[in-house]
């Protein structure tokens, strides 16, 4: 989370500031700028790009270890499934809130298969919004997520949840296949 990537994991040191202006970030920040103004004019567009570049230079972030190439259809499928899950999660939590029986929970460790930080973050964020889980701890070294799961009856149900979480990771990995090159020292 450090803003300037001075020391990298393989020991080389370099200022990351000049690499901080990433095209994707600039496009995204420009879109945010336009959304805030609520209209698109040439002046706003130019201003937005300038502000985006300025933000990228002032608050440099390490580049995301991006995937080798997204598969749009599978990505859409992941997104659609995710939206369905968000609705299911809300209904489920609402039902738990309203019933009288006390709720039983579990803390489950999920060892992710992928070693990419990007996938770890994405899966953690998605798991937080879908049925019954809040990320309690994330361990980057082993790529383990510890999830608090709401409304778990027994160890069997906890196991089922672990399978669901790993299935979600598999769907994400299929939609965003990771780069085939080796991950240096991570």
């Amino acid at each position: 989370m450090s803003p300037v990537m001075r020391t990298r994991r393989d020991g080389t040191t370099k200022l990351a500031r000049h690499r901080a202006v990433q095209p994707f970030a600039v496009v995204w920040l420009t879109l945010v700028w336009l959304a805030l103004w609520g209209e698109v004019t040439p002046l706003l567009l130019v201003g937005g790009v300038l502000v985006a570049v300025l933000v990228c230079v002032v608050f440099p972030l390490p580049p995301i270890d991006l995937v080798s190439g997204a598969r749009p259809l599978l990505l859409l499928a992941v997104l659609a499934r995710f939206l369905v899950d968000v609705v299911r999660a809300s209904v489920q939590v609402a039902a738990v809130v309203l019933r009288r029986r006390p709720v039983r929970n579990a803390v489950v460790a999920v060892d992710l298969e992928s070693s990419s930080d990007f996938v770890l973050t994405l899966v953690a964020a998605m798991l937080s919004l879908i049925p019954g889980s809040v990320v309690v701890e994330a361990r980057r070294s082993t790529h383990t997520l510890y999830l608090h799961v709401l409304d778990v009856e027994d160890a069997e149900a906890a196991e089922a949840f672990r399978r669901d979480a790993l299935a979600l990771e598999q769907r994400v990995l299929r939609a965003l296949p990771p780069r085939p090159v080796e991950e240096d020292a991570t």
Binding site: V86, V87, A89, S90, Q92, V93, A94, V96, V97, L98, P102, V103, N105, S128, L129, G132, V134, V136, H148, L150
Partner: peptide
Amino acid sequence: LAAVGVLRMPDLLSRMHAATKPQVLG
């Protein structure tokens, strides 16, 4: 419902469920 959940749930972690999911969809 999210507000009711925050009141009724037994511990903090359960409350976080109520405070996040129905709240986001809402």
